[in-house]
Design a protein around this nucleic acid. Structure first.
Lengths: 222, 222
DNA sequence: CGTAAACTTTAGGGGTGTTAACTTGGCATG
DNA sequence: CATGCCAAGTTAACACCCCTAAAGTTTACG
Protein backbone atom coordinates (compact mmCIF):
# COMPACT_ATOMS: atom_id res chain seq x y z
CA UNK A 1 0.00 0.00 0.00
CA UNK A 2 2.92 2.29 -0.52
CA UNK A 3 2.49 5.28 -2.81
CA UNK A 4 2.50 4.48 -6.51
CA UNK A 5 4.99 6.39 -8.57
CA UNK A 6 2.49 8.10 -10.81
CA UNK A 7 4.85 10.33 -12.65
CA UNK A 8 7.88 12.46 -11.85
CA UNK A 9 10.64 12.52 -9.27
CA UNK A 10 9.08 10.49 -6.51
CA UNK A 11 11.09 8.63 -3.94
CA UNK A 12 10.18 5.02 -3.56
CA UNK A 13 8.76 4.32 -0.16
CA UNK A 14 7.23 6.23 2.69
CA UNK A 15 8.13 9.75 1.77
CA UNK A 16 6.73 10.62 -1.59
CA UNK A 17 9.21 13.37 -2.29
CA UNK A 18 7.14 15.41 -4.66
CA UNK A 19 3.71 15.09 -3.22
CA UNK A 20 2.69 18.70 -3.65
CA UNK A 21 3.27 18.68 -7.37
CA UNK A 22 1.77 15.25 -7.78
CA UNK A 23 -1.37 16.38 -6.00
CA UNK A 24 -1.59 19.56 -8.03
CA UNK A 25 -1.26 17.57 -11.21
CA UNK A 26 -3.91 15.11 -10.10
CA UNK A 27 -6.16 18.02 -9.21
CA UNK A 28 -5.70 19.46 -12.68
CA UNK A 29 -6.59 16.10 -14.19
CA UNK A 30 -9.75 15.96 -12.13
CA UNK A 31 -10.59 19.48 -13.24
CA UNK A 32 -10.09 18.51 -16.85
CA UNK A 33 -12.64 15.74 -16.71
CA UNK A 34 -15.12 17.05 -14.18
CA UNK A 35 -14.57 20.77 -13.88
CA UNK A 36 -13.69 22.65 -10.72
CA UNK A 37 -16.31 20.83 -8.66
CA UNK A 38 -14.49 17.57 -9.26
CA UNK A 39 -11.33 18.95 -7.68
CA UNK A 40 -11.39 17.41 -4.26
CA UNK A 41 -8.76 16.73 -1.68
CA UNK A 42 -9.83 13.14 -1.28
CA UNK A 43 -9.96 12.59 -5.02
CA UNK A 44 -6.52 13.97 -5.68
CA UNK A 45 -5.06 12.02 -2.76
CA UNK A 46 -6.73 8.84 -3.97
CA UNK A 47 -5.32 9.32 -7.45
CA UNK A 48 -1.81 9.77 -6.12
CA UNK A 49 -2.19 6.84 -3.75
CA UNK A 50 -1.97 8.75 -0.54
CA UNK A 51 -4.15 9.45 2.46
CA UNK A 52 -6.42 12.50 2.23
CA UNK A 53 -4.94 14.03 5.34
CA UNK A 54 -1.50 13.83 3.81
CA UNK A 55 -2.63 16.47 1.35
CA UNK A 56 -3.08 18.89 4.21
CA UNK A 57 0.69 18.90 4.69
CA UNK A 58 0.91 20.71 1.36
CA UNK A 59 -2.41 22.47 0.91
CA UNK A 60 -4.22 24.34 3.60
CA UNK A 61 -7.65 23.61 2.20
CA UNK A 62 -9.55 22.42 -0.82
CA UNK A 63 -9.62 26.00 -2.10
CA UNK A 64 -5.86 26.04 -1.92
CA UNK A 65 -5.60 22.86 -3.94
CA UNK A 66 -8.05 24.29 -6.43
CA UNK A 67 -5.90 27.38 -6.77
CA UNK A 68 -2.93 25.20 -7.63
CA UNK A 69 -5.02 23.36 -10.20
CA UNK A 70 -6.13 26.68 -11.60
CA UNK A 71 -2.55 27.76 -12.09
CA UNK A 72 -1.77 24.64 -14.08
CA UNK A 73 -4.98 25.08 -16.03
CA UNK A 74 -4.09 28.64 -16.86
CA UNK A 75 -0.71 27.54 -18.15
CA UNK A 76 -2.33 24.92 -20.31
CA UNK A 77 -4.64 27.50 -21.74
CA UNK A 78 -2.00 30.00 -22.74
CA UNK A 79 0.10 27.25 -24.27
CA UNK A 80 -2.83 25.98 -26.33
CA UNK A 81 -3.71 29.47 -27.45
CA UNK A 82 -0.16 30.33 -28.40
CA UNK A 83 0.07 27.12 -30.35
CA UNK A 84 -3.14 27.90 -32.20
CA UNK A 85 -2.03 31.45 -32.85
CA UNK A 86 1.25 30.23 -34.28
CA UNK A 87 -0.61 28.63 -37.16
CA UNK A 88 -1.90 31.85 -38.65
CA UNK A 89 0.03 32.77 -41.82
CA UNK A 90 2.23 35.84 -41.74
CA UNK A 91 1.49 37.35 -45.10
CA UNK A 92 -0.79 39.89 -46.77
CA UNK A 93 -1.75 43.41 -45.82
CA UNK A 94 -0.49 44.40 -42.36
CA UNK A 95 -3.89 45.51 -41.15
CA UNK A 96 -5.55 42.35 -42.38
CA UNK A 97 -2.81 40.36 -40.76
CA UNK A 98 -3.20 42.12 -37.43
CA UNK A 99 -6.92 41.59 -37.53
CA UNK A 100 -6.43 37.99 -38.46
CA UNK A 101 -4.19 37.56 -35.45
CA UNK A 102 -6.80 39.15 -33.22
CA UNK A 103 -9.48 36.89 -34.65
CA UNK A 104 -7.29 33.85 -34.16
CA UNK A 105 -6.69 34.79 -30.56
CA UNK A 106 -10.40 34.93 -29.99
CA UNK A 107 -10.99 31.73 -31.88
CA UNK A 108 -8.26 30.05 -29.89
CA UNK A 109 -9.90 31.17 -26.66
CA UNK A 110 -13.27 29.80 -27.66
CA UNK A 111 -11.83 26.68 -29.18
CA UNK A 112 -9.96 25.90 -26.00
CA UNK A 113 -13.12 26.37 -23.99
CA UNK A 114 -14.89 23.90 -26.24
CA UNK A 115 -12.06 21.38 -26.33
CA UNK A 116 -11.32 21.51 -22.61
CA UNK A 117 -14.41 22.84 -20.88
CA UNK A 118 -13.35 21.48 -17.52
CA UNK A 119 -10.03 23.25 -17.61
CA UNK A 120 -11.57 26.42 -18.96
CA UNK A 121 -14.16 26.51 -16.21
CA UNK A 122 -11.46 25.90 -13.69
CA UNK A 123 -9.56 28.91 -14.96
CA UNK A 124 -12.40 31.31 -14.52
CA UNK A 125 -15.35 30.13 -12.50
CA UNK A 126 -15.71 29.64 -8.81
CA UNK A 127 -13.14 32.14 -7.63
CA UNK A 128 -13.25 32.71 -3.91
CA UNK A 129 -13.22 36.31 -2.86
CA UNK A 130 -11.17 36.18 0.31
CA UNK A 131 -8.82 33.43 -0.82
CA UNK A 132 -5.14 34.01 -0.23
CA UNK A 133 -4.14 35.07 -3.71
CA UNK A 134 -0.51 36.17 -3.80
CA UNK A 135 -0.73 38.11 -7.07
CA UNK A 136 -4.35 39.04 -7.49
CA UNK A 137 -5.59 38.62 -11.01
CA UNK A 138 -2.17 38.62 -12.55
CA UNK A 139 -2.05 34.86 -12.94
CA UNK A 140 -5.23 35.04 -14.98
CA UNK A 141 -3.74 37.70 -17.21
CA UNK A 142 -2.23 35.35 -19.75
CA UNK A 143 -4.88 35.88 -22.41
CA UNK A 144 -5.20 39.48 -21.29
CA UNK A 145 -1.58 40.30 -22.10
CA UNK A 146 -1.85 38.56 -25.44
CA UNK A 147 -4.89 40.62 -26.29
CA UNK A 148 -3.11 43.78 -25.27
CA UNK A 149 -0.39 43.17 -27.83
CA UNK A 150 -2.94 42.69 -30.58
CA UNK A 151 -4.61 45.97 -29.71
CA UNK A 152 -1.29 47.81 -29.64
CA UNK A 153 -0.65 46.54 -33.13
CA UNK A 154 -4.03 47.78 -34.28
CA UNK A 155 -3.34 51.22 -32.84
CA UNK A 156 0.05 51.37 -34.53
CA UNK A 157 -1.60 50.51 -37.83
CA UNK A 158 -4.30 53.14 -37.42
CA UNK A 159 -7.17 50.69 -37.21
CA UNK A 160 -8.01 51.42 -33.58
CA UNK A 161 -8.00 55.05 -32.49
CA UNK A 162 -5.32 55.76 -29.90
CA UNK A 163 -7.77 57.51 -27.61
CA UNK A 164 -9.79 54.31 -27.48
CA UNK A 165 -6.84 52.17 -26.58
CA UNK A 166 -6.84 52.49 -22.77
CA UNK A 167 -8.99 49.77 -21.36
CA UNK A 168 -9.89 48.49 -24.80
CA UNK A 169 -9.20 44.93 -23.69
CA UNK A 170 -12.48 44.75 -21.85
CA UNK A 171 -14.78 44.59 -24.86
CA UNK A 172 -13.12 41.89 -26.93
CA UNK A 173 -12.33 39.84 -23.90
CA UNK A 174 -15.86 40.04 -22.61
CA UNK A 175 -17.22 39.04 -26.00
CA UNK A 176 -15.16 35.89 -26.43
CA UNK A 177 -15.40 34.98 -22.78
CA UNK A 178 -19.15 35.34 -22.75
CA UNK A 179 -19.57 33.43 -25.95
CA UNK A 180 -17.40 30.61 -24.67
CA UNK A 181 -19.47 30.30 -21.53
CA UNK A 182 -22.79 30.57 -23.33
CA UNK A 183 -21.62 27.74 -25.52
CA UNK A 184 -20.11 25.37 -22.99
CA UNK A 185 -22.69 25.65 -20.26
CA UNK A 186 -25.13 28.35 -21.17
CA UNK A 187 -28.23 28.51 -23.29
CA UNK A 188 -26.21 28.01 -26.49
CA UNK A 189 -24.92 24.63 -25.38
CA UNK A 190 -27.29 22.65 -27.55
CA UNK A 191 -26.64 24.52 -30.73
CA UNK A 192 -25.36 22.39 -33.54
CA UNK A 193 -21.84 22.98 -34.90
CA UNK A 194 -23.16 25.15 -37.73
CA UNK A 195 -25.16 27.51 -35.54
CA UNK A 196 -22.32 27.53 -33.08
CA UNK A 197 -19.80 28.61 -35.67
CA UNK A 198 -22.19 31.19 -37.02
CA UNK A 199 -22.52 32.68 -33.55
CA UNK A 200 -18.75 32.72 -33.18
CA UNK A 201 -18.21 34.38 -36.56
CA UNK A 202 -20.89 36.95 -35.91
CA UNK A 203 -19.56 37.82 -32.49
CA UNK A 204 -16.01 38.18 -33.71
CA UNK A 205 -17.09 40.25 -36.71
CA UNK A 206 -19.06 42.57 -34.46
CA UNK A 207 -16.06 42.92 -32.19
CA UNK A 208 -13.68 43.75 -35.01
CA UNK A 209 -16.10 46.32 -36.42
CA UNK A 210 -16.54 47.83 -33.00
CA UNK A 211 -12.80 48.41 -32.73
CA UNK A 212 -12.54 50.20 -36.07
CA UNK A 213 -12.39 53.74 -34.74
CA UNK A 214 -9.11 54.82 -36.29
CA UNK A 215 -8.59 56.35 -39.77
CA UNK A 216 -7.74 53.02 -41.36
CA UNK A 217 -10.50 51.32 -39.48
CA UNK A 218 -13.34 53.50 -40.70
CA UNK A 219 -12.24 52.83 -44.29
CA UNK A 220 -12.39 49.05 -44.12
CA UNK A 221 -15.91 47.64 -43.99
CA UNK A 222 -15.21 43.94 -43.46
CA UNK B 1 -42.09 21.66 15.96
CA UNK B 2 -44.78 22.14 13.40
CA UNK B 3 -43.87 23.88 10.16
CA UNK B 4 -43.54 27.62 10.38
CA UNK B 5 -45.72 29.54 7.98
CA UNK B 6 -42.89 31.19 6.16
CA UNK B 7 -44.94 33.00 3.63
CA UNK B 8 -47.89 32.29 1.37
CA UNK B 9 -50.86 30.01 1.39
CA UNK B 10 -49.73 27.48 3.93
CA UNK B 11 -52.22 25.56 5.99
CA UNK B 12 -51.55 25.59 9.66
CA UNK B 13 -50.50 22.25 10.98
CA UNK B 14 -49.36 18.93 9.69
CA UNK B 15 -49.87 19.28 6.00
CA UNK B 16 -47.93 22.22 4.80
CA UNK B 17 -50.17 22.69 1.82
CA UNK B 18 -47.73 24.50 -0.38
CA UNK B 19 -44.50 22.75 0.36
CA UNK B 20 -43.27 22.56 -3.19
CA UNK B 21 -43.41 26.31 -3.67
CA UNK B 22 -42.06 27.00 -0.21
CA UNK B 23 -39.09 24.76 -0.91
CA UNK B 24 -38.49 26.34 -4.29
CA UNK B 25 -38.57 29.76 -2.70
CA UNK B 26 -36.19 28.69 0.03
CA UNK B 27 -33.90 27.24 -2.62
CA UNK B 28 -33.96 30.54 -4.47
CA UNK B 29 -33.06 32.33 -1.25
CA UNK B 30 -30.14 30.01 -0.69
CA UNK B 31 -29.04 30.62 -4.26
CA UNK B 32 -29.25 34.36 -3.73
CA UNK B 33 -26.87 34.30 -0.80
CA UNK B 34 -24.58 31.42 -1.68
CA UNK B 35 -24.96 30.76 -5.38
CA UNK B 36 -26.08 27.51 -6.96
CA UNK B 37 -23.76 25.43 -4.79
CA UNK B 38 -25.66 26.52 -1.71
CA UNK B 39 -28.89 25.07 -3.05
CA UNK B 40 -29.28 21.85 -1.15
CA UNK B 41 -32.22 19.67 -0.33
CA UNK B 42 -31.38 19.63 3.33
CA UNK B 43 -30.81 23.34 3.45
CA UNK B 44 -34.12 24.18 1.82
CA UNK B 45 -35.99 21.72 4.01
CA UNK B 46 -34.34 23.13 7.12
CA UNK B 47 -35.30 26.65 6.15
CA UNK B 48 -38.92 25.67 5.65
CA UNK B 49 -38.96 23.67 8.85
CA UNK B 50 -39.46 20.30 7.29
CA UNK B 51 -37.67 17.02 7.11
CA UNK B 52 -35.26 16.52 4.19
CA UNK B 53 -37.07 13.43 3.05
CA UNK B 54 -40.28 15.39 2.79
CA UNK B 55 -38.67 17.37 0.00
CA UNK B 56 -38.37 14.21 -2.05
CA UNK B 57 -42.14 14.10 -2.26
CA UNK B 58 -41.92 17.16 -4.47
CA UNK B 59 -38.49 17.10 -6.06
CA UNK B 60 -36.88 14.04 -7.49
CA UNK B 61 -33.36 15.20 -6.75
CA UNK B 62 -31.20 18.12 -5.80
CA UNK B 63 -30.83 18.94 -9.50
CA UNK B 64 -34.59 19.11 -9.74
CA UNK B 65 -34.79 21.53 -6.84
CA UNK B 66 -32.03 23.58 -8.39
CA UNK B 67 -33.98 23.72 -11.63
CA UNK B 68 -36.94 25.13 -9.75
CA UNK B 69 -34.71 27.70 -8.11
CA UNK B 70 -33.28 28.58 -11.49
CA UNK B 71 -36.74 29.23 -12.84
CA UNK B 72 -37.49 31.64 -10.01
CA UNK B 73 -34.10 33.24 -10.48
CA UNK B 74 -34.75 33.72 -14.16
CA UNK B 75 -38.05 35.40 -13.42
CA UNK B 76 -36.41 37.72 -10.95
CA UNK B 77 -33.85 38.65 -13.53
CA UNK B 78 -36.28 39.54 -16.29
CA UNK B 79 -38.38 41.52 -13.85
CA UNK B 80 -35.39 43.48 -12.62
CA UNK B 81 -34.23 44.14 -16.15
CA UNK B 82 -37.65 45.24 -17.31
CA UNK B 83 -37.91 47.56 -14.34
CA UNK B 84 -34.55 49.08 -15.14
CA UNK B 85 -35.42 49.40 -18.79
CA UNK B 86 -38.65 51.17 -17.92
CA UNK B 87 -36.67 54.07 -16.52
CA UNK B 88 -35.10 55.10 -19.81
CA UNK B 89 -36.76 58.29 -21.14
CA UNK B 90 -38.81 58.01 -24.29
CA UNK B 91 -37.77 61.15 -26.10
CA UNK B 92 -35.28 62.36 -28.69
CA UNK B 93 -34.16 60.95 -31.98
CA UNK B 94 -35.61 57.49 -32.67
CA UNK B 95 -32.23 55.97 -33.43
CA UNK B 96 -30.66 57.43 -30.31
CA UNK B 97 -33.61 56.21 -28.33
CA UNK B 98 -33.36 52.69 -29.72
CA UNK B 99 -29.67 52.61 -28.98
CA UNK B 100 -30.30 53.94 -25.52
CA UNK B 101 -32.75 51.14 -24.95
CA UNK B 102 -30.23 48.60 -26.13
CA UNK B 103 -27.59 50.08 -23.85
CA UNK B 104 -29.98 50.05 -20.93
CA UNK B 105 -30.78 46.43 -21.54
CA UNK B 106 -27.11 45.61 -21.39
CA UNK B 107 -26.58 47.78 -18.35
CA UNK B 108 -29.53 46.15 -16.65
CA UNK B 109 -28.07 42.73 -17.33
CA UNK B 110 -24.71 43.63 -15.87
CA UNK B 111 -26.21 45.56 -13.00
CA UNK B 112 -28.35 42.62 -12.02
CA UNK B 113 -25.34 40.35 -12.10
CA UNK B 114 -23.52 42.72 -9.76
CA UNK B 115 -26.45 43.26 -7.42
CA UNK B 116 -27.45 39.62 -7.24
CA UNK B 117 -24.45 37.54 -8.19
CA UNK B 118 -25.84 34.43 -6.54
CA UNK B 119 -29.05 34.57 -8.52
CA UNK B 120 -27.24 35.46 -11.71
CA UNK B 121 -24.89 32.52 -11.35
CA UNK B 122 -27.83 30.29 -10.64
CA UNK B 123 -29.43 31.37 -13.90
CA UNK B 124 -26.50 30.47 -16.06
CA UNK B 125 -23.79 28.38 -14.49
CA UNK B 126 -23.76 24.74 -13.60
CA UNK B 127 -26.30 23.55 -16.09
CA UNK B 128 -26.47 19.80 -16.20
CA UNK B 129 -26.41 18.35 -19.65
CA UNK B 130 -28.67 15.36 -19.27
CA UNK B 131 -31.07 17.00 -16.84
CA UNK B 132 -34.75 16.63 -17.56
CA UNK B 133 -35.38 20.01 -19.09
CA UNK B 134 -38.92 20.28 -20.43
CA UNK B 135 -38.30 23.24 -22.74
CA UNK B 136 -34.60 23.23 -23.40
CA UNK B 137 -33.12 26.66 -23.42
CA UNK B 138 -36.38 28.45 -23.83
CA UNK B 139 -36.70 29.25 -20.15
CA UNK B 140 -33.39 31.01 -20.31
CA UNK B 141 -34.52 33.04 -23.27
CA UNK B 142 -35.94 35.94 -21.30
CA UNK B 143 -33.08 38.33 -21.93
CA UNK B 144 -32.63 36.81 -25.36
CA UNK B 145 -36.13 37.76 -26.50
CA UNK B 146 -35.74 41.24 -25.09
CA UNK B 147 -32.53 41.67 -27.02
CA UNK B 148 -34.18 40.43 -30.17
CA UNK B 149 -36.76 43.22 -30.00
CA UNK B 150 -34.05 45.83 -29.65
CA UNK B 151 -32.26 44.53 -32.69
CA UNK B 152 -35.44 44.46 -34.73
CA UNK B 153 -35.94 48.11 -33.87
CA UNK B 154 -32.43 48.90 -34.98
CA UNK B 155 -33.00 47.16 -38.29
CA UNK B 156 -36.25 49.04 -38.85
CA UNK B 157 -34.43 52.30 -38.20
CA UNK B 158 -31.63 51.45 -40.58
CA UNK B 159 -28.92 51.30 -37.94
CA UNK B 160 -28.30 47.60 -38.25
CA UNK B 161 -28.18 46.15 -41.75
CA UNK B 162 -30.98 43.66 -42.37
CA UNK B 163 -28.58 41.07 -43.75
CA UNK B 164 -26.75 41.12 -40.43
CA UNK B 165 -29.90 40.64 -38.41
CA UNK B 166 -30.12 36.83 -38.33
CA UNK B 167 -28.23 35.57 -35.35
CA UNK B 168 -27.19 39.08 -34.36
CA UNK B 169 -28.17 38.37 -30.76
CA UNK B 170 -25.03 36.36 -30.17
CA UNK B 171 -22.56 39.22 -30.17
CA UNK B 172 -24.22 41.67 -27.79
CA UNK B 173 -25.35 38.91 -25.51
CA UNK B 174 -21.89 37.39 -25.36
CA UNK B 175 -20.38 40.78 -24.62
CA UNK B 176 -22.58 41.65 -21.66
CA UNK B 177 -22.65 38.10 -20.38
CA UNK B 178 -18.91 37.80 -20.51
CA UNK B 179 -18.38 41.15 -18.89
CA UNK B 180 -20.80 40.31 -16.11
CA UNK B 181 -18.96 37.09 -15.34
CA UNK B 182 -15.52 38.64 -15.59
CA UNK B 183 -16.69 41.17 -13.05
CA UNK B 184 -18.51 39.00 -10.55
CA UNK B 185 -16.13 36.09 -10.42
CA UNK B 186 -13.47 36.57 -13.00
CA UNK B 187 -10.23 38.49 -13.16
CA UNK B 188 -12.04 41.84 -13.12
CA UNK B 189 -13.62 41.16 -9.74
CA UNK B 190 -11.24 43.37 -7.83
CA UNK B 191 -11.53 46.37 -10.06
CA UNK B 192 -12.73 49.47 -8.31
CA UNK B 193 -16.09 50.97 -9.26
CA UNK B 194 -14.46 53.46 -11.60
CA UNK B 195 -12.47 50.94 -13.59
CA UNK B 196 -15.47 48.68 -13.56
CA UNK B 197 -17.74 51.29 -15.04
CA UNK B 198 -15.11 52.22 -17.58
CA UNK B 199 -14.95 48.60 -18.70
CA UNK B 200 -18.72 48.48 -18.94
CA UNK B 201 -18.93 51.69 -20.96
CA UNK B 202 -16.16 50.61 -23.26
CA UNK B 203 -17.67 47.21 -23.88
CA UNK B 204 -21.09 48.61 -24.60
CA UNK B 205 -19.70 51.31 -26.88
CA UNK B 206 -17.76 48.72 -28.82
CA UNK B 207 -20.86 46.61 -29.14
CA UNK B 208 -23.00 49.46 -30.41
CA UNK B 209 -20.35 50.46 -32.94
CA UNK B 210 -20.07 46.87 -34.07
CA UNK B 211 -23.77 46.78 -34.87
CA UNK B 212 -23.70 49.90 -36.99
CA UNK B 213 -23.73 48.24 -40.39
CA UNK B 214 -26.85 49.86 -41.83
CA UNK B 215 -27.04 53.19 -43.73
CA UNK B 216 -27.96 55.18 -40.64
CA UNK B 217 -25.43 53.30 -38.60
CA UNK B 218 -22.40 54.12 -40.71
CA UNK B 219 -23.26 57.80 -40.47
CA UNK B 220 -23.36 58.05 -36.69
CA UNK B 221 -19.98 57.87 -35.02
CA UNK B 222 -20.99 57.74 -31.36
C1' DC C 1 -65.66 5.94 7.79
C1' DG C 2 -61.97 4.36 5.23
C1' DT C 3 -58.53 5.30 1.75
C1' DA C 4 -54.72 7.74 0.17
C1' DA C 5 -51.76 11.55 0.09
C1' DA C 6 -48.63 14.32 2.71
C1' DC C 7 -45.42 14.27 6.05
C1' DT C 8 -42.72 12.05 9.85
C1' DT C 9 -39.02 9.16 12.04
C1' DT C 10 -35.34 5.97 11.70
C1' DA C 11 -31.66 3.77 9.43
C1' DG C 12 -28.14 3.13 6.25
C1' DG C 13 -24.53 3.46 2.37
C1' DG C 14 -21.75 6.62 -0.04
C1' DG C 15 -19.46 11.09 -0.80
C1' DT C 16 -17.01 15.45 1.00
C1' DG C 17 -13.86 18.82 4.16
C1' DT C 18 -11.31 19.08 8.16
C1' DT C 19 -9.12 18.29 12.83
C1' DA C 20 -6.56 15.53 16.41
C1' DA C 21 -3.44 12.32 17.68
C1' DC C 22 -0.37 8.87 16.37
C1' DT C 23 3.63 6.46 13.66
C1' DT C 24 7.38 6.32 10.44
C1' DG C 25 11.75 7.41 8.88
C1' DG C 26 15.24 10.86 6.96
C1' DC C 27 18.81 13.64 8.62
C1' DA C 28 21.68 16.37 11.58
C1' DT C 29 23.97 16.64 15.62
C1' DG C 30 26.60 15.24 19.88
C1' DC D 1 27.78 5.53 15.70
C1' DA D 2 23.84 6.37 18.40
C1' DT D 3 20.38 9.52 19.40
C1' DG D 4 16.69 12.28 18.95
C1' DC D 5 14.20 15.82 16.45
C1' DC D 6 10.70 16.90 13.09
C1' DA D 7 8.47 16.67 8.80
C1' DA D 8 5.88 13.64 6.10
C1' DG D 9 2.84 10.40 6.37
C1' DT D 10 -0.77 7.53 9.01
C1' DT D 11 -5.50 6.12 11.35
C1' DA D 12 -9.71 7.72 13.60
C1' DA D 13 -13.35 10.62 14.08
C1' DC D 14 -16.82 14.56 13.53
C1' DA D 15 -19.85 17.14 10.65
C1' DC D 16 -22.03 17.99 6.53
C1' DC D 17 -23.99 16.53 2.10
C1' DC D 18 -27.09 13.32 -1.43
C1' DC D 19 -30.05 9.69 -1.83
C1' DT D 20 -32.93 5.36 -0.77
C1' DA D 21 -35.95 2.55 1.88
C1' DA D 22 -39.28 1.02 5.30
C1' DA D 23 -42.73 1.93 8.50
C1' DG D 24 -45.38 5.02 11.21
C1' DT D 25 -48.72 9.38 11.89
C1' DT D 26 -51.81 12.89 10.51
C1' DT D 27 -55.23 14.95 7.66
C1' DA D 28 -58.14 15.77 3.50
C1' DC D 29 -61.66 14.02 0.89
C1' DG D 30 -64.79 10.97 -1.31
Amino acid sequence: MYPVNTSTAARSSYHHGDLRNALARAAADLAATGGPDAVTIRGAAREVGVTPTAAYRHFSSQADLLAAARELAMNGMVVAMAEYLGQVPDDGDPVDRAIERLLSTGRGYIRFAQDEPGIFRTCFTGQLRGAADPDPGLDAMGPYALLGQMLDELVALGYLAAEHRPGAEAGPWAAVHGLALLIIDGPLRDFGPAERNAAIDQTLAMTVRGLATGPRGRAASH
